[in-house]
């Protein structure tokens, strides 16, 4: 599982951080998403998928490998 984020789309709603705090964070200055782990362990798959589903700005893509 690989994660691709689109920082231009992000609206800083923080849904991804709530869903998977080990994988996503928000920049302090402008709240934009940062990826802590682009290749997270398999255990966090469901959380990451949840984050992608919740993201209101469609800024998170999960690519199967």
């Amino acid at each position: 599982m690989k994660i691709v984020i689109d920082q231009d789309r992000c609206v800083g709603a923080g849904q991804c951080v709530l869903a998977a705090a080990d994988v996503f964070d928000q920049r302090d200055e402008d709240g934009v998403v940062v990826l802590l782990d682009a290749l997270p362990p398999q255990e966090s798959q469901s959380q990451v998928e949840e984050a992608a589903a919740r993201c209101p700005a469609l800024a998170i893509e999960v690519v199967a490998e």
């Binding site: 923080g14 709530l18 964070d25 928000q26 200055e29 402008d30 709240g31 934009v32």
Partner: peptide, 13 residues
Amino acid sequence: FRRLLTGQFTVRR
């Protein structure tokens, strides 16, 4: 506008 504000409302803040 939104970008000016989102940093003030992050999960951490």
